[in-house]
Amino acid sequence: MAQLTVSGRDTAYVWVGRDTGGQPDPAAVLVRRAGALLLGRPETELVLTHDREGRPVVRVDEVTGSVEVAVSVSRTAGLVAVAARRAGAVGVDVERIRPLPALALAHRWFPPAELAWLGDRPEAGRTVDFLRLWTAKEAVGKALGRGLRDGGLHRLMPPPGLPLRPVPGDELLRVGHPRLGGDLVLAVAVRASAQVDVEVVQRPGHGVTAERSASVERTSLPVVVRGN
């Protein structure tokens, strides 16, 4: 597994690997490895659990108390992404770029300001722009511990890109889009009062395998739109 670049700054780390649907679960493998690297402890000492808001964490229990790392997991066709951060909550979402009725989906699910922004974007890149907004909403929802419930799809997102940018209406939420290349869109969100760095430690195709192949399309996108 790729090693971390330790800068002393608040950093969200991301690992992306293959998800072939076998056992052990590739997501659990990545989560344990991420926790071991960030906590500096053997994987056998780690406990995978959840915090009070239901967000996943990796914990080490010590005599003086527990030490935790916040983690987040996302899956899309054949891939799994894991984000981890020591300083606080983190959320991650990854989607493959594919043909989508971007404007129809945005009309159904997004607030008017985002629909207008998307309509003004070049048609050739509109699907990617839609996926950037969608993954940002998913990542923010995971950082909050409630997913897309309570109007998460209507939560206004900042313009896509890096560095992480504050979410309108909540200065403690930041979200951005590290580049993965290929046909992937990745979003990372954090809850923080200051800027947070993002480092993609491991990219697709490196270091995550499974015992059997049973790749399944896993996505949160409503790919069929009926009516308006």
Rank of each mutant, 00 (worst) to 15 (best):
R226H: 08
G35F: 01
P122H: 06
R9M: 14
G169H: 12
E43Y: 00
R98N: 03
V216Y: 08
T76C: 12
L148T: 05
R18A: 15
L186M: 06
L100A: 14
W134D: 00
A34G: 14
P160E: 13
T135F: 02
T209C: 08
G54P: 08
R18W: 09
R59C: 13
V196I: 07
V80D: 04
D170G: 07
G176P: 05
V128F: 00
R9N: 14
F110S: 00
G21E: 06
V82Y: 06
P26T: 06
Q23Y: 13
A194I: 12
P112C: 14
R155G: 09
P111Q: 02
G65I: 02
L79Y: 07
G182H: 13
L131H: 00
L162D: 14
P99K: 03
L46F: 04
P204L: 10
L156H: 05
A36D: 03
R33M: 13
D93V: 04
A27H: 01
G176K: 01
E138L: 02
D120E: 10
L162C: 12
D150N: 14
V128W: 00
P222W: 08
K142Y: 14
G181D: 09
V92E: 00
R132I: 00
F130Q: 00
T219S: 15
T49R: 15
A106F: 05
L103R: 03
W15A: 12
S193F: 08
R121H: 11
V67W: 09
T135G: 15
L79T: 02
R226F: 05
D183R: 15
V208Y: 01
P166A: 02
R218D: 11
S215F: 03
L148D: 01
L105S: 00
A136G: 15
P178H: 10
V47M: 09
A139C: 11
L164H: 04
R218T: 14
V216E: 15
M1T: 11
L172Q: 15
L100P: 00
R85Y: 10
L156Y: 03
L153E: 03
H154K: 11
E53N: 09
D61Y: 07
R85C: 11
L156K: 01
W15H: 06
L38E: 04
W15G: 11
L37S: 04
R9S: 15
R59H: 11
G40T: 09
L37G: 01
A210R: 00
A136H: 05
R32T: 07
V80M: 06
A139P: 07
H177I: 01
A77E: 14
G88E: 07
P26H: 10
L118I: 07
G8Q: 04
V216G: 08
L184S: 02
T127I: 15
Q3E: 15
E53A: 15
D120H: 10
W109Y: 15
R126N: 02
V73I: 13
V16L: 13
R85V: 11
G40N: 05
L37F: 01
L38Y: 10
A124H: 12
R55C: 12
D120L: 12
R226E: 09
S7K: 06
G152Y: 00
L118K: 03
K137V: 09
A36Y: 02
R55E: 10
